[in-house]
Measured scan of single mutants.
Amino acid sequence: AFSSEQLARLKREFNENRYLTERRRQQLSSELGLNEAQIKIWFQNKRA
């Protein structure tokens, strides 16, 4: 489960760009304390 802070950040990123570069995913992973797979799957689900 994502914290409300993490979700807000993911939604902001998604609004700016529906697709993440690998580098951006790595940055978000480290900033949010999530693993890259969690972020990747969140974006895939959000696009679906």
Rank of each mutant, 00 (worst) to 15 (best):
F2K: 02
S3P: 02
K11D: 15
S30R: 14
R25A: 15
Q26G: 06
Q6H: 06
R25C: 15
R24I: 07
T21A: 04
R24P: 01
F14K: 02
Y19D: 07
Q6D: 04
I41H: 11
N35Q: 11
N45H: 11
E22C: 10
E16N: 10
L7Q: 05
E13R: 02
K40F: 14
Q38D: 14
G33M: 06
L32K: 00
F14M: 02
R9S: 06
I39R: 00
N15W: 07
R18W: 09
A37P: 04
E5N: 06
T21D: 11
N15Y: 10
R25W: 11
I39K: 01
Q6R: 03
N35I: 06
S30D: 10
F43G: 00
A8Q: 09
N45F: 09
R25Y: 12
F43Y: 05
N17P: 02
Q38I: 14
N35K: 08
T21K: 03
R18L: 03
A37V: 12
L32W: 03
S29W: 03
Q27C: 08
R24H: 06
Y19T: 08
N45S: 09
R25V: 15
E36T: 06
K46Q: 15
L10G: 01
E22A: 15
S4C: 14
E16M: 10
N45P: 02
Q44R: 11
N45W: 14
R47S: 09
E5S: 09
L20V: 05
E36R: 03
I39P: 00
G33W: 03
Q27N: 07
K40I: 15
F14H: 02
L32N: 01
L32A: 02
Q27P: 02
W42C: 03
A48V: 10
S29L: 03
A1E: 11
S29A: 15
Q44S: 09
N17M: 05
R23P: 08
S4K: 13
E16Q: 12
E5H: 10
L28F: 02
Q44E: 15
F43S: 00
Q27G: 04
N15S: 12
S30C: 10
R24Y: 06
E22M: 10
K40H: 15
E22R: 15
R24W: 03
K40V: 15
Q44D: 14
A8P: 00
A1Q: 12
L32E: 00
R18E: 09
F2N: 02
L10Q: 00
L34N: 00
N15T: 10
N17Y: 06
R18N: 10
Q26K: 14
I39D: 01
A48M: 12
L10R: 01
S30M: 14
R23I: 13
R9D: 02
S4V: 13
K40L: 15
T21G: 08
N15Q: 13
E13V: 05
N35W: 05
A37L: 14
S30F: 14
L10V: 01
K11T: 15
L32P: 00
I39E: 00
A37R: 10
Y19R: 07
E31V: 05
N17D: 07
R23F: 11
R23C: 08
L32R: 00
I41N: 14
A37T: 13
Y19P: 04
S30G: 07
E31K: 04
Q44P: 02
A1L: 12
R12V: 09
E22H: 13
Q26T: 08
L28G: 00
K46R: 15
R47W: 13
W42Y: 07
L34T: 03
T21F: 03
A48P: 04
N45T: 10
K40Y: 13
R9I: 12
F14V: 02
L10E: 00
K11Y: 14
S3D: 06
A48G: 08
L20C: 06
A37I: 13
E16G: 05
R12D: 10
W42Q: 01
K11N: 15
R47T: 08
A8D: 11
I39G: 00
R25L: 15
L34G: 01
Y19E: 08
G33R: 05
Q44A: 13
Y19A: 05
I41A: 13
E13N: 02
S3G: 04
R25D: 01
E5M: 07
G33K: 07
S29G: 06
L32V: 04
K40S: 15
Q38P: 01
S4Q: 13
Y19L: 07
Q26A: 11
L34E: 00
A48D: 09
F14G: 02
K40G: 11
W42P: 01
Q44I: 08
A37Q: 14
A37M: 14
K11W: 15
F2A: 02
L28Q: 00
I41C: 12
E36W: 05
Q6G: 02
W42E: 00
L7S: 04
S29T: 05
F14I: 03
Y19V: 10
R47Q: 11
E31R: 02
Q6Y: 02
S4D: 14
L7E: 11
F14N: 01
L7G: 02
L10W: 00
F43Q: 00
S30E: 14
L34Q: 01
Q44V: 07
E22Y: 08
A37F: 12
E5D: 09
R9C: 06
Q26C: 07
Q27R: 10
S29R: 03
R9H: 06
L7H: 05
Q27T: 09
Q44K: 09
R25N: 09
E13A: 12
R47N: 13
L10T: 00
Y19G: 04
F43V: 01
R24E: 08
L7A: 04
E22V: 14
K46A: 15
L28P: 00
E16S: 07
I39W: 03
W42G: 00
F2V: 05
L7F: 04
L20Q: 02
R47P: 03
A1W: 13
G33L: 05
Q26R: 14
S4M: 12
E36Y: 04
R18K: 11
Q27M: 11
T21S: 12
A37S: 12
Q38M: 13
I39A: 01
Q44W: 09
E13F: 04
E31C: 06
Q6T: 07
R12E: 12
E16Y: 08
E5R: 07
N15D: 13
R12I: 11
R12C: 11
T21R: 04
R9Y: 06
W42D: 00
F43R: 00
R24F: 05
K11H: 15
E5F: 08
W42L: 03
S3R: 04
Q6V: 12
E16D: 08
I39V: 09
T21M: 03
N35H: 10
L28H: 00
L32T: 09
F2P: 04
T21W: 04
E5P: 04
N17C: 14
E31F: 04
Q38R: 07
R23E: 14
L28A: 00
L20A: 04
L20T: 03
Q27Y: 08
Q38A: 12
S29I: 05
R47C: 11
L32G: 00
